[in-house]
């Protein structure tokens, strides 16, 4: 029995070393690798930071399971025709207590951070400088700029000014669609009979030709044309945006 115990201690030390090493390697990888596509809104920062925090927190958990699993398979395997039993350890109070404490602690922690903090940050500022009504239908997007009073039916693109707090008011005329701009980390369903709202601030210039994250793609299955239900998104400087709005008005008058 004594021999088994000292074996166990060696095993524990090796597992601990491997665990620390693999966790370190994992965290290093997580910090040097950018897993995120381009982010061009205030919401993107909140979303990406939440991801990164969860990635860091989950790293030691993942590596712990991988190390214990891998080490056990290599260290404790016997040949297939062995029939001798292992020592009947049915419980280990310390291990169970640690496990429960840590999983409870982590689960509760992530509820508050990044969970509640992220939701609060997303909902913090409800003063929009600009309102755009987004209307989805099978299979097209309509955009109406409320303050500018211009409208695009079956639009090709959505044009926005940079550094501007924007409120999207989203609805649908038939089935459920979803307004999703990957670069903004914004996604909200378009529901018939309901107006859903999203607030966000644009933070970067860009357009679809430069990065395909600048697109509004329907994210809720809506039938045959679902795949193709997308428009480009362009973020202009505020000056360019004003010029663009004027050009649209002139086009409307002359048209």
């Amino acid at each position: 029995m004594g021999a088994e115990r000292s074996d166990n201690r060696v095993d524990l030390i090796i597992v601990a070393v491997l665990w620390v090493a693999l966790t370190g390697a994992g965290l290093w990888w997580a910090t040097v690798t950018n897993l995120h596509p381009i982010g061009a809104s205030s919401n993107a920062v909140i979303s990406d930071e939440a991801f990164d925090l969860l990635l860091y927190l989950s790293m030691p958990v993942t590596t712990f399971v991988v190390v214990v699993l891998g080490y056990s398979v290599l260290r404790f395997r016997v040949s297939l025709d062995e029939t001798e039993d292992a020592a009947p350890v049915r419980s280990n109070r310390l291990f169970i207590a640690m496990w429960v404490l840590i999983t409870v602690g982590l689960s509760v922690y992530v509820i508050f951070n990044p969970g509640f903090t992220g939701l609060d940050a997303l909902a913090a500022d409800k003063n929009a400088e600009m309102t755009i009504e987004v209307t989805a239908s099978q299979w097209r997007w309509d955009y109406r700029y409320v303050e500018e009073n211009i409208e695009f039916l079956d639009a090709d693109g959505l044009v926005l000014p940079v550094d501007t707090r924007i409120l999207f008011k989203i609805t649908s005329q038939d089935v459920i669609h979803s307004f999703w701009v990957p670069a903004f980390r914004v996604k909200k369903d378009a529901v018939p009979g309901l107006i859903t709202e999203v607030y966000m601030t644009t933070t970067k210039l860009g357009d679809f030709a430069q990065d395909d994250g600048f697109r509004n793609q329907c994210a809720e299955l809506c039938g045959t044309g679902h795949t193709r239900m997308r428009t480009t998104v362009t973020v202009l400087t505020r000056v360019d945006f004003i010029a663009w709005v004027d050009a649209q008005r002139n086009a409307e008058v002359s048209g």
Partner: peptide
């Protein structure tokens, strides 16, 4: 959000049992 994060606690107990079982077993 909260209820969903909390369900990882009982799920973790399954993992606990799995890892504790193979630890120092005689794995065939």
């Amino acid at each position: 959000l909260a209820s969903t994060e909390l369900i990882s606690i009982p799920t973790g107990l399954i993992m606990l049992s799995a890892l504790g079982t193979i630890w120092q077993g005689r794995l065939r």
